[in-house]
Design a protein around this nucleic acid. Structure first.
Lengths: 110, 110
DNA sequence: TTGGTTCCCTAGATTGTCAAGGGGAGGGAA
DNA sequence: TTCCCTCCCCTTGACAATCTAGGGAACCAA
């Protein structure tokens, strides 16, 4: 009944976080999750069960594109890059995030 | 496939917004929605289909309590007040919100 | 008496995330 | 060699939160 555990993520922000990570260059999924984890100073954790469906959605939507390669550790890995459409999406979603999160903060500050 | 419309709310924040509104005193559901709308300077809109289930959840959880009364406009209305447990919940959820939203901002700023 | 507003509520669909699995392949240790 | 750990991919099923789209009653002004 009561909330059992604190969420690892704010719902709706995952796509934006992924796209933002990819701005730094092509990356495989595993590295995207690590990047987000590190950049958020260990606060945000992207579960693989959330990550891969999200990557699939973004690719379907044309926001990212994928191609197989070899990782630094010599493993088969799928490298994702952001597309033009993805860059546009970042801007939109970042704007939405700012609007909404600032609105929440205004309410909480009142 | 693509997102059709911008969300009216950040998922996971509704309970906190409701509880926060009720800190100002007992209110009926309709007024809670209006209060959030106004305090967020028209950015956040709570749909009734989200609001009433949320109120039901919070009451079940013991975070708020309800009693029927008469509104300023002379209508039958259900007045909600925050409970001790609700006050505790505000603190917890506000902390969670801060942690996560700041983490998102750190990632986006990188 | 008609229509707008205020106030309550629900059913169904959708979406995003999570938990919990499975699997293959590289590399180091024993 | 064998074993295990890490890296890297993925899927399935359940769940929680929200939205859409309704329905309904009562007050009030025109």
């Amino acid at each position: 009944m009561a909330k059992s555990s604190t969420p690892a993520l704010l719902q709706g922000t995952l796509d934006l976080l992924i796209l933002h990570a990819l701005r730094r260059g092509a990356m495989h999924g595993y590295a995207i999750a690590q990047t987000i984890h590190v950049l958020s100073t260990d606060v945000l954790r992207v579960e693989e069960g959330s990550l891969y469906p999200a990557l699939y959605r973004l690719e379907l939507d044309g926001a990212i594109s994928a191609e197989w390669g070899l990782s630094e550790n010599n493993r088969k890995a799928k490298y994702y890059s952001i597309t033009k459409r993805g860059v546009k999406l970042i801007a939109e979603q970042q704007e939405t995030w700012s609007r909404l999160s600032e609105a929440v903060n205004r309410v909480l500050a009142s």
